[in-house]
Design a protein around this nucleic acid. Structure first.
Lengths: 248, 248
DNA sequence: GGTTTTTTTTGACATAGGTCAAGTCCATGA
DNA sequence: TCATGGACTTGACCTATGTCAAAAAAAACC
């Protein structure tokens, strides 16, 4: 099996494509294009017509909105398996946000018109898309909640916990920051300065921070930052630690 | 035609139900229940099982998440025609947020299980739901953008402009606040004090503010707060005013 | 390997908006 | 009509986080 075929096979396991007929899936994926892009590459720009639905195969893509004054609000940073631009594709409207790689990444593109059409023909695909959009909405809700209810330190702690869960099946102590600190800071709605000072607070609590790597003093050191959204993932890896605030 | 029948007929014109077969629509709506509730009534609570999909027929319902420290983040305030709880219903998970009326309102409930089932059977309904979720995502994105990129005064200006557009087909000068100022403040992610002080700034610019009514000094006084999201609605009412920042 | 460039950290300082505590206004209801 | 309680406003003050500038550390490049 060549690499291209293997990748398409992996893609077929994504939730959006699950339980589709083989024929329909092959039809869709025959229109798909998989490409590698360099960090910094802009995939699409706010206001432009949306020609593709994108899937991150491997890497990280930030989705953000710029303001007239040059600031930007990062809506999400999509990782492996994430879908980009779904709302714009299905409403057939210009891109609501811009998308730019924050790491070298492998990205799949699917023509917007094709997927719009297929959704009207294939009920199972439509249901899968409803699920994806629902999950996406959940993430946006979480982001609103975080930016309104949590302090900078809480947002950083939550983010580190999320990384920690993603990166280890058993809550190991080492966390690797997947992209620039300034990008993380922007994602967490704070300046790089604030992010840096916040990490210093973690250092004071026993965390070791060296360049892009962070080592927790104890495996459960971040459990105090667990929330509703992460609880499921915590449970999935049999993380039974408790915290003052919540069961993690 | 009695009142109940008339309401159901209105409901049938909602985007989510458009272009459904009469039979399917009647089947769904036969399970629907329309009720009037008083301001302050809690429709559903964060963490509880979701038994219904709700539609606001007439009134206002705030959807919010509470924090452990008692603060709350308002995700949206749903008005006429808006759908509540869609992500939780379609993922079949506990409510992500709580819902409470901020004005006496008429609300339609549709059993969650029924709509989940119908979506798998009726492709057109599924596509409509995809649209609704996409629009919902857009609104959440806008909220994130606002809370990160705009000052308190800008958020208030934007909100007043939105009300102004909703309330007049031709940009009249009078704006009526549809619910408590403290609720508006929370929705705009600020304290009642800040909201009050911000309104005072508007007063200084010629706005007349008396209890829950605001009168603009000029019909286009708020156009500087127009953004991408409102531009469409502005255009729809033939608002051709220009601002320093954007065409409204 | 050393030099340049970019990213991150640190310090000093500024400020938007929050907090707390009185007031004042207004709606409701007797 | 007045009394009462809740909603709103105002003032004084506070604090988390932003801003700006410079140093330090990493990363990229020759």
């Amino acid at each position: 099996m060549n690499t291209e075929t293997k990748i398409l096979k992996d893609i077929a396991t994504l939730p959006v494509f699950s339980d589709l007929g083989t024929k329909e899936l092959d039809g869709l994926l025959s229109l798909a294009q998989v490409r590698n892009y360099k960090k910094g590459k802009t995939l699409f720009r706010q206001g432009e017509e949306v020609t593709n639905l994108y899937f991150v195969i491997d890497g990280w893509v930030k989705v953000y909105k710029g303001s007239n004054s040059g600031d930007e609000a990062i809506l999400q940073i999509c990782g492996d398996g994430d879908i980009l631009m779904a709302p714009s594709v299905f409403l057939d409207i210009p891109a609501l946000a811009s998308g730019q790689l924050v790491q070298d990444s492998k990205v799949l593109s699917l023509p917007a018109a094709a997927i719009r059409k297929e959704v009207t023909l294939n009920g199972k695909l439509a249901v899968n898309i409803i699920h994806s959009l629902s999950v996406y909405s959940q993430e946006l809700i979480q982001k609103i909640e975080h930016s309104q209810l949590m302090t900078a330190a809480e947002r950083v702690g939550w983010f580190l916990l999320k990384l920690s869960i993603q990166q280890s099946q058993g809550m190991q102590a080492v966390i690797k920051l997947p992209f620039d600190k300034s990008t993380i800071a922007a994602y967490l709605d704070m300046t790089p300065e604030t992010f840096s000072r916040t990490l210093k607070q973690f250092k004071a609590k026993g965390f070791q921070i060296k360049s892009g790597t962070i080592v927790k003093p104890m495996p459960n050191a971040l459990c105090g930052f667990c929330d509703e959204g992460l609880a499921l993932e915590c449970a999935a890896i049999n993380c039974t630690m408790k915290t003052g605030r919540k069961t993690c």
